[in-house]
Amino acid sequence: MDQSTTGLYPKFHVSRADGRDQPGGDRAGADYLVMDLAYDEHAVPAALAYADSCRERYPQLADDIVAQLAHRQATADQQEGVGSVCSADAPLGNTWPAIKAGGAQ
């Protein structure tokens, strides 16, 4: 399958752990988008953009997203012997400036 021309297709089955997206729930019919933070070079910038977008209304969620991304990158860097973490505008594998809780720096 050529990923560059496939577009969106039903690759994953996702539902809420609390069941609220099931028929009769207050989120029935919810539509989810899954991103692979480990292998998709566009997922980290997208997640950081989401964190920035939701920060005013959901500051804890934004901080949690940034912290998760920073932790993932720090773990990967330790395995590779690199001392940096990710940013929204650097491609995977490059030296990246640090992300701090509170937003991308």
Rank of each mutant, 00 (worst) to 15 (best):
C86A: 06
G81C: 12
E80I: 14
S15G: 07
Y39N: 15
G24L: 07
R16D: 10
A46F: 11
A98K: 02
A17S: 14
P59K: 02
C86Q: 01
A30R: 04
L61D: 13
G103L: 10
R57K: 10
K100Q: 11
A43G: 01
P59H: 07
A98D: 03
Y9E: 12
H42P: 04
D40S: 08
Y39R: 13
G19D: 10
Q79I: 13
S53L: 15
A51C: 02
L48G: 05
D77K: 07
Q105L: 08
W96S: 05
M35Q: 13
V82K: 06
S87Y: 05
S87V: 14
K100M: 10
A101C: 04
G29T: 13
N94C: 14
A17K: 10
E41F: 08
R20G: 05
D36N: 15
Q68H: 09
S84W: 04
A43W: 01
G7K: 03
Q78M: 15
A51K: 00
A28V: 03
C54E: 13
A47H: 04
S84Y: 09
H71M: 07
P97C: 02
P97R: 04
G7Y: 03
L69G: 01
Q78I: 15
V85A: 09
Q22Y: 01
Q68A: 13
T5R: 09
G24I: 13
K11F: 03
K100E: 13
A101Y: 01
S53D: 14
V44S: 00
G102I: 00
I65Q: 01
P59V: 02
L48P: 00
T95W: 03
G102A: 07
Q68V: 11
C54H: 05
V82I: 05
Q73G: 03
A98M: 06
G81M: 12
D36R: 08
D21P: 03
R72V: 12
L92G: 05
M1L: 14
G81A: 12
P23T: 08
R20D: 12
G102T: 03
D89L: 06
G83F: 09
Y58C: 15
G81Q: 08
T95D: 11
R57S: 08
V14E: 06
V44D: 06
V66G: 00
I65M: 09
E80N: 10
R20W: 05
H42D: 11
G81I: 10
A43I: 06
A90Y: 00
P45L: 03
L92Y: 00
D2M: 11
M35Y: 04
Q3C: 15
G81H: 02
Q79T: 14
P59G: 04
A70I: 08
A47K: 04
Q68P: 01
G7H: 09
D52W: 02
Y39W: 07
Y9F: 15
Y58W: 13
G102K: 02
A88L: 10
T95N: 11
G83I: 07
